[in-house]
Computed example of a mutant assay.
Amino acid sequence: MKQPFSVCVYCGSRTGETPAFVEAARAVGHWIGSNQAQLVYGGGNNGLMGVVADATLESGGRVVGVIPKALVEREFAKLDCTELHVVDTMHDRKRMMAERADAFLALPGGIGTFEELFEVWTWRQLGYHDKPIGLLDAQGYFGPLLTFLRSSVAHGFMNEWQMGLLRVDSDPAALLAQLAQNSGNSSGLADLREI
C-alpha cells in the first residue's frame, strides 16, 4: 500500500506582522488535511509552525513533528502530533524530515527557514535527492530574495537550471498540487486544486 503524499514544510516559529501569513499557513494545512496527505515539520507549536500543524490536524491529515531535545521547551513541542519524534541534534531533525517527505515547501519565516530551504535546494542541485521544492510567496514576502537570486544568475554565480528547481507561487493550492504531481506520489489525493 502506497504511503500518503508527504510534504515537509519549513516556516516561521513566529506569525509575522501580516495576517496573510497566518492565512497562507492555514490554507496549506487545510489542503494537506483535506487531501488525506501528511505534514512533516519541525514539531513546534509556535508561530506559523503551529498554525499549519493545527490546520492539518483539523482537516483530517497526519502530522509528523521532528524536534531536537534542546528545543522541546523553547519551541513548545506540539504534543498532539500524529507522530512526534524527539531527536538528539538539529542534523538528526533535518535528516528525518527529508527522509519522510515527498516534497519540500517553504512558507514565510526567518533565518531557520532560509537555512533549511537553501540546504534542501543545494542537496537537490547536487543530486542528493530529486524531490520538488516550492516557495510560497505569500504577500510577496520572498520577492526581495527572488530578486537577489536572479541577480546571482545575472552575475554568473547561479544559472537558470538552478532557479528552475525552485517552484514559486502565491497560491497554496496550486503550488501544493504541482509539488504533489511532480513528486510522483499524487495518487489518492482527493482534489489537487481544493483547499
Rank of each mutant, 00 (worst) to 15 (best):
residue 1 M to N: 03
residue 2 K to C: 12
residue 2 K to A: 12
residue 3 Q to W: 06
residue 5 F to P: 09
residue 9 V to N: 04
residue 11 C to M: 09
residue 16 G to V: 06
residue 18 T to L: 11
residue 19 P to Q: 08
residue 20 A to P: 04
residue 22 V to M: 09
residue 22 V to D: 02
residue 23 E to M: 06
residue 23 E to L: 09
residue 23 E to V: 03
residue 25 A to D: 01
residue 25 A to M: 08
residue 28 V to T: 05
residue 30 H to N: 15
residue 31 W to H: 06
residue 31 W to G: 01
residue 33 G to N: 03
residue 35 N to W: 06
residue 35 N to F: 05
residue 37 A to Y: 08
residue 38 Q to H: 07
residue 40 V to H: 05
residue 41 Y to A: 03
residue 46 N to M: 13
residue 47 G to T: 13
residue 52 V to Q: 04
residue 55 A to V: 04
residue 57 L to C: 04
residue 58 E to Q: 14
residue 59 S to P: 15
residue 61 G to P: 09
residue 63 V to Y: 05
residue 63 V to D: 02
residue 67 I to S: 09
residue 70 A to P: 03
residue 73 E to H: 06
residue 73 E to M: 02
residue 73 E to S: 13
residue 75 E to S: 09
residue 79 L to G: 06
residue 80 D to P: 13
residue 81 C to S: 11
residue 83 E to K: 08
residue 84 L to W: 03
residue 85 H to C: 02
residue 87 V to N: 01
residue 87 V to S: 00
residue 88 D to S: 02
residue 91 H to E: 00
residue 92 D to Y: 00
residue 92 D to M: 06
residue 94 K to E: 02
residue 99 E to P: 06
residue 99 E to G: 07
residue 100 R to G: 04
residue 100 R to Q: 13
residue 101 A to G: 04
residue 105 L to Q: 02
residue 105 L to N: 00
residue 105 L to W: 00
residue 107 L to N: 00
residue 107 L to G: 02
residue 108 P to K: 00
residue 109 G to E: 11
residue 109 G to M: 10
residue 112 G to V: 01
residue 116 E to G: 07
residue 117 L to M: 01
residue 117 L to A: 03
residue 118 F to Q: 10
residue 119 E to I: 07
residue 120 V to C: 05
residue 120 V to E: 03
residue 122 T to L: 05
residue 125 Q to V: 02
residue 127 G to Q: 00
residue 128 Y to P: 12
residue 129 H to G: 01
residue 132 P to M: 02
residue 133 I to S: 05
residue 134 G to Y: 12
residue 137 D to G: 05
residue 141 Y to E: 01
residue 144 P to S: 06
residue 144 P to I: 04
residue 146 L to H: 05
residue 146 L to I: 11
residue 147 T to H: 11
residue 151 S to F: 09
residue 152 S to W: 11
residue 155 H to W: 10
residue 155 H to S: 13
residue 155 H to Q: 12
residue 159 N to E: 07
residue 159 N to P: 08
residue 165 L to S: 01
residue 167 R to N: 08
residue 169 D to G: 07
residue 174 A to N: 13
residue 174 A to W: 00
residue 177 A to N: 14
residue 181 Q to W: 12
residue 182 N to K: 11
residue 188 G to P: 04
residue 189 L to T: 15
residue 191 D to G: 07
residue 192 L to G: 13
residue 193 R to E: 13
residue 194 E to Y: 15
residue 194 E to M: 14
